[in-house]
Amino acid sequence: MKAIRILSRGIRDAFKSVIRNFSLSTAAITCSSITLILVAVAMIISYNVNHITNDLEKELTIVVYLKQTCAEEQKEEFKNKLEMMKNNNVEEYKYKSKDEWKLEMKEYSDTFSTALDYLDTNPLLDSVTIYVKDVNLLKETTDEIKQLDYVESADYGEGMAENLVKVFDIIEKVTIIIVLALVLVTAFLIGNTIRLTIFSRRNEIEIMRLVGASNTSIRLPFLFEGLFLGILGSIIPILITVYGYVLLYDHFNGYLFTQIIRLTEPFNFILNVSGILLVIGAIIGMFGSYHAVRKYLKI
């Protein structure tokens, strides 16, 4: 019963304080809104970059052509080797014989078809497409395959795709750092605001301490105040995230620049982002005020 009384008193006092120090509260809410909007943007970028990177990584394969002279048993040997490499970096592979290629090319164009008919032997090569587990080891895996003497060539999308993945990796890391920095800034801002409201109530706190109020019951109203400020500060960023991202997604039709770069679907995703924003707002509000009150509880 007593705990409930102290709790309800804390909530009531927190509301009073938010309203009584209206301009100060507005300042704190605005500051945290702005930082949380940036946090939201950074989170959306980070998540999408991650998504795009994953998509791109799926597209990265090694294409191996076997030599014309390659015997049937060597082909079998190669397949066996790939099976064994599944323990390493090979996720999956697809074998396509030169006869299959020939048929496909004939269907593709009549000119090819006639040209190929004139030749007695099939000039095309057997090929294997290899999907890898870890894109970062793409080069090593390719080099390993290249060393086999019945392999004519082994190539992966050297250059563009690989670099893109690297760039995205950096973008992702940078955005995470930015998000963390912004979270700290917001905590500091809310803490500062609470410090000001505490300063105007320091006599009250002193008397509470002297008449025997426990630290918890003194701290509670300020914790709730921080919580309210944090939650109120996250409302605008959440609205902007929800409406903004849906608009953005619809505007681009789900693709950014090309068909390859797909954006994350808005639903569930924005709900998660909103939830995270709310939690960040609440936690940093409480953390900021917890820190600010501490100094005044040593009378």
Binding site: K2, R5, I6, V211, G212, A213, S214, S217, I218
Partner: peptide, 10 residues
Amino acid sequence: AFALESIGIQ
């Protein structure tokens, strides 16, 4: 009354 409220008296 503040003194009593502060220590959670009903």
